[in-house]
Amino acid sequence: MNWLSDDAIERLREAGSEPELAGTPYRMLERLGRGGMGTVYLVEDSRLNRRVAMKVLEVADSSGDLEQRLLREARVLAQLEHPGIVPVHDVGTLPDGRIFYAMKFVQGRRLDEIARDSASLPERLRLFQKICEPIAIAHSLGVLHRDLKPENIMVGPFGEVLVMDWGIAKVLASSAESSPINNEVSAIAAALTGIPLKTPPITAQGTVVGTPGYMAPEQARGEIAQLDQRADIFSLGAILKFLLSARDGGVSAANHSTRRLSAIIAKATAPAPSSRYDSVQDFTGDIAAYLDGLPVKAYPETLLERTARLISRNRVAIVLVLAYLLARVLLILWRPH
């Protein structure tokens, strides 16, 4: 018998945990990596002859909580129709008993991998605005992501943005009863998997879910019941800070322009939810205002700063007017008497 190297053992461990696809329309292509609650594989859907990403639950804990979460992620994603949210194609149980869902195979790079690429400040801010769009849609449907971080954001080759890993998403209580997420799709998912779903899935008060550094303080304290869209806004603020600091080493307060940007980040990541933006739209509104040279809500300007900003924003017009006035003065002075 040949010697099994450490690498061979690792390959065998991976092969041993590979999902059983016999009898399904899927054909294994390769293992893509480990996600929030399971492993993601690249598989081919032989029915449609297309490649899809299949997320398979690796750990079936005795309480079934993780299983419920994976199914819930599939349900949440199925309802969030937006180009920035990965569409779910299929959900079910594999022959080996493991739960899976198949989704669009996203080709691109993670935000944390591309953040150091050279891009101008306006380009990075516009990229950030794209990240905010699907989150705003989710919030409008009463869904919080709760684990927003650069590793969960994919950027495609044409600059398209996809927000991934909705595994610990929360359906807000106020919209839970009326939300289609908790009604229509739960029946479909339960029928497909044969597993009745808890509605809504519960994360117990005091349980901490999220990622340190990107998690709002109230989330880190496990105040699950108190969480609202402002927890995601905190995470988006932390992402904006990461996006701006990854290349330039941080947003300094050296001049008026960067002070305004720093104020936007500070407002988004304020420790108290009441001090943050009320909505993602408010947040992106300030970003848009910053890009257009307009006043931002996060930063009350002094008269001098406002004047300076107006001059800066209308520099061309002001120069033209001054040039015109100067020409008139010279014309008057030099006109032959």
Partner: peptide, 13 residues
């Protein structure tokens, strides 16, 4: 099983 293959057997396995 979890250590060796990364699998967690279910109750009915």
């Amino acid at each position: 099983a979890r250590s060796v293959l990364g699998l967690d057997p279910r109750d009915n396995d």
